[in-house]
Amino acid sequence: MTAAYQRRAWVQQIMGMPVSVHVRCDDPSAAHVEHRVAAVFAELRHADAVFSPYRDDSDLSRWQRGELTLHSANVPLTKADAAFAEADAALVKAGAALAEANGTLAEAAAALAEVNGTLPKADFTLAEVVALCEQARLRTGGWFDARADGRTYDPSGLVKGWAVQRAARNLAGLHGYGWCLNAGGDVLVHAPDGRPPWRVGIEDPDRPSRTTGVITVRDGAVATSGTAHRGAHITDPHTRAPATKVRAVTVTGPDLLWADVYATAAAARGTDAIDWLNSLPRIEAQLLTTTGTTHTTTGWSGG
């Protein structure tokens, strides 16, 4: 080792929450590290633009108003390319006819540009998220439900974990580097062989400046749902009332999308969710009830 193993952090506010990236390596100021981290933030901002329920111009809002369809939204890149080519060919013909008709090629080109501009975005992923929400509903026995309140379709509870998981792919390319991505309290980490794992403190919901325990994670996710910062914001999909039995539930697993979904579902379900969590492969959890008792899965390692 020629250089010191250093740690560096970046923080940005995205989706209304702090997102921090910590990188451990010999050269945290190197340009390629900067670029990877910038790509993480850029991808999360893009996800916010697509999925924000608070933005009128998000794809989610437009879909809910009927201005987009999932079919057109979910055109994979190759299909979109084919569609472009097909449309172009058709437009060339149309353009030729137009040019012939009124003799103005410029007008035809303008028409071509206009039609191209109305083709669906190729990187549009709303349909993937909708499909994942349905998968999450089935996997959680209905305790995770994007339609929990019975009025609106809100995939936010899944989008965050999904987006962070995807954005972290930018860091996975940093071979031999350790990294920790924390999105408003949901954590995804990687520590390379021969380097120390990450020590993840579990927040005390009654005193958020303290922790109730620490778990060490080399590769994987830690997600927490609860009422500590935003009150009873999780809706019981069955009663459509705010879920209040769980003060906080922390779930660890191989990926953040599912750890986060399971934590949200467990918070909605209540104390007996710990038995369900115990039955899930590669998932461990700690659940604190509002009455002050702590339940853990058999493999939970948090002190």
Partner: peptide, 20 residues
């Protein structure tokens, strides 16, 4: 506390300043 990061209920941007 000797910890690297904290998992907790979603912190809002407004609440971040006072967070661990």
């Amino acid at each position: 506390a000797e910890i690297d990061t904290v998992s907790g209920a979603t912190v809002t941007s407004d609440g971040y300043i006072a967070s661990l």
